[in-house]
Amino acid sequence: MIQQGGGALGIGEIPIGPTWQTNYFIGADAQGRDVMARVLYGGRASLEIGIGSALICCGIALVLALLAGFFRGPIDALLSRLMDLIWAFPVYLLAISLATVLLTKPNGLQWGFVHVDPSSLWVPTAIIALVYVPYVFRPVRGQVLSVREKEYVEAAIAQGASNGRLMFGEILPNVITTVIVMLPLMIATTVLTESALSFLSIGVQPPKASWGTIIDDGQSLLYTRPWVAIAPGIMIVLTVLSLNVLGDGVRDALDPRAKLRMRG
């Protein structure tokens, strides 16, 4: 088992990885922390944020797309314009803007009953979820618009079904596949985004670590302790690669015609 901070180290004894010990398998960072342990713990944060923000993003986008596509008219116009506006911002710049603003408040934010601590993982999760909402919203809304015109929806209206039943009972089951197909690729994208934000030190805040923050730490140790930066990067590549492969598979299985576009 690899444990954080296992073993005491003196000055000049900080091992440079890779080694064949179970402790300090790939060495320690400048503060003597076991890089392997940090990578594993950091991975937890990265995956939590990646999966969490992808789920939140898809959830929000799905509900908004259902509302916009179902009610059309002013609701659709409003939501679509809002999405266009978010879309107009480069993903990273928008995330940077939001993160910077939230980080200028040292004691966290207090909105009504909601208290957000700046070092909470929820901050990057929420930011990443928000900036990708238009990317899911657009294709799903288009689908809702077309499904809404189907005769089975008319049949449900003729039976006296309520709006909620039409949206969630009839339309939702027919658009949810699109979201399921997008989900693995969304997680791949959000994991990458999280690492980038953390690398820019506006994602996960110390003392918590994620793969991105470890790469950031490793930047200054690059020539002396390269594994600090290399190891988490390899983890990111492997994770994102498997998510992409999984996503391709899911897409081929569920929706061979889907063309997905993610900008990063």
Partner: peptide
Amino acid sequence: ISMPVFWL
């Protein structure tokens, strides 16, 4: 596609 550009 899977590589973070800053890491690369």
